[in-house]
């Protein structure tokens, strides 16, 4: 595990927000990938995956893939996401290898309290972001 991810894990273990919420953090470390899976409260279905490059910490939450978008609605959804990027606190929307996500990026030199804030705000954004996107998605 990289030092940066160790730092993230240390910052989130035993951390609880003002309302008492907390995170469950699981580490994965093998030849292929080093990452943390961070689960917030009730929303275990949308895990935050933390990884570290040389310069940045990345916190990414996969929301849905393109196959779930109602036919003909992709452009409209993309516009809504771009339009809301500034409004969404600390996190942004992304599209990587066909999977839509919200993510936060920060310097690997960030302090524990900033990491906690970043992850907490990202967690709070998950359901709000999904709510906005839901009308463009095929119903279950």
């Amino acid at each position: 595990m990289s030092n940066s991810l160790d730092k993230v894990q240390a910052a989130l273990t035993d951390f609880s927000c003002q309302d008492g919420c907390s995170f469950k953090v699981t580490a994965t470390d093998n030849d292929d990938i080093s990452m943390l899976t961070i689960i917030y409260e009730d929303i275990e279905e949308f895990a935050i995956l933390a990884t570290a490059s040389e310069t940045q910490l990345l916190f990414n939450v996969a929301l849905f893939d393109r196959s779930q978008i109602i036919e003909g609605q992709e452009s409209a959804l993309n516009k809504v996401m771009l339009g809301l990027n500034i409004a969404m606190p600390l996190s942004s929307f992304a599209l990587t290898a066909g999977i839509y996500s919200i993510f936060g990026a920060m310097s690997i030199n960030s302090e524990a309290k900033h990491i906690q804030e970043e992850v907490l705000v990202l967690s709070e954004n998950i359901m709000d972001a999904l709510e906005v996107c839901q009308k463009f998605l095929i119903k279950a």
């Binding site: 292929d32 990938i33 990452m35 279905e45 949308f46 995956l49 940045q56 990026a105």
Partner: peptide, 21 residues
């Protein structure tokens, strides 16, 4: 960073049998 996002998503996918992701 692009590689990290794709690979971590894949890794979570592989691990999903055991978890409720």
């Amino acid at each position: 960073r692009e590689v990290l996002i794709v690979k971590s998503t894949e890794a979570a996918q592989k691990a999903s049998v055991a978890t409720a992701t």
